[in-house]
């Protein structure tokens, strides 16, 4: 009975999410989550029940929609939370569930999210779960490709990829990714150039206008100097450094020498 009700609500939720009625979807999701707690085979009870597989399928469906909803709401924290709840459904193959059609897009979304957050260790841990065929899936291969481009440093390719997202849900994270990429480019430029023409800097950092560039420099890298002569100086002294008194790590040296003394004492 509760199952029937749940199924109806899920369909409503799905259509609400798809038609961008976010407020309605959020309230439906709240109701559904309360409903889910009544099912015996799902958390928090985890008891065996005769309808286990149906209940699991329903739970999974609700959470999948919740993930999409979070993306549409542009809510990273909610996305993470829903994802964490959804993952057990994907990993636990013993419940007699058939694979969900949405599994691949959602796993891809999660991978992209981890990239945006620069959580590469988790990104690769997630990848280990996937089989060869799954990795070749268009939804998953997309974030994998993006990651490889990021690692090599082909940042402009990452930005080109923005236009080729395989799923509308990816757009939100790709827009976030631009910020991540911009920061990475800024760090690299700082290390690689002594100075850069303002025009080139704008192009490399993907900024629209001179003022945006000045603003970005002021907020993120206060040591940069955007000069009147048409160059950005990265304010880093690239010449060989002169040894200064403060460069001698005297405290470390003292403690190391003392420890040698104690140890030698012990041996003698």
């Amino acid at each position: 009975m509760a199952l029937e009700q749940g199924k109806k609500l899920v369909i409503k939720l799905q259509s609400a999410v798809e038609s961008d009625h976010l407020g309605e979807a959020a309230s439906l999701l709240g109701d559904l989550k309360v409903l889910l707690t009544n099912f015996e085979s799902l958390p928090p009870m985890n008891q065996p029940s005769p309808h286990a597989s149906e209940e699991c399928a329903l739970g999974r469906q609700v959470l999948e929609q919740a993930v999409f909803l979070a993306v549409k709401q542009r809510d990273k924290i909610a996305f993470q939370r829903q994802m964490a709840q959804l993952k057990p459904y994907y990993q636990d193959k013993g419940r007699g569930l058939t694979d969900s059609a949405l599994r691949m897009p959602i796993l891809g979304l999660n991978l992209l999210f981890l990239l945006v957050e620069n959580r590469l260790a988790e990104f690769h841990s997630e990848l280990e779960h996937l089989s060869e065929a799954e990795r070749a899936n268009v939804y998953v291969s997309f974030p994998i490709l993006v990651e490889q481009q990021l690692m090599v440093g082909s940042y402009h390719k990452v930005l080109e990829a923005r236009t080729r997202t395989p799923h509308p849900g990816y757009a939100f994270f790709m827009s976030l990714l631009v910020d991540t990429v911009r920061d990475a480019v800024a760090d690299c430029s700082e290390a690689a150039y002594e100075r850069l023409g303002i025009g080139a800097a704008k192009e490399i950092l993907l900024l629209e206008s001179d003022t945006a560039l000045a603003e970005y420099a002021a907020v993120k890298h206060p040591d940069w100097k955007v000069d009147g002569d048409g160059f950005v100086y990265f304010g880093k002294d690239h010449g060989p450094k002169q040894a200064k008194a403060s460069d001698v790590p005297s405290l470390r040296l003292i403690s190391e020498t003392l420890s040698y003394a104690t140890e030698l004492e012990r041996i003698v």
Binding site: V152, G153, H156, A192, Y193, G197, A200, H238
Partner: peptide, 27 residues
């Protein structure tokens, strides 16, 4: 690589990662 632009980014990243010790001149 695909072209000079691509190479420029790759070099910049390599410099930042400490793989090579070099300076780029954009102009």
């Amino acid at each position: 690589l695909d072209g000079p632009a691509s190479a420029e980014f790759v070099c910049a990243k390599a410099i930042n990662d400490g793989v090579i010790d070099a300076v780029l001149d954009h102009e």
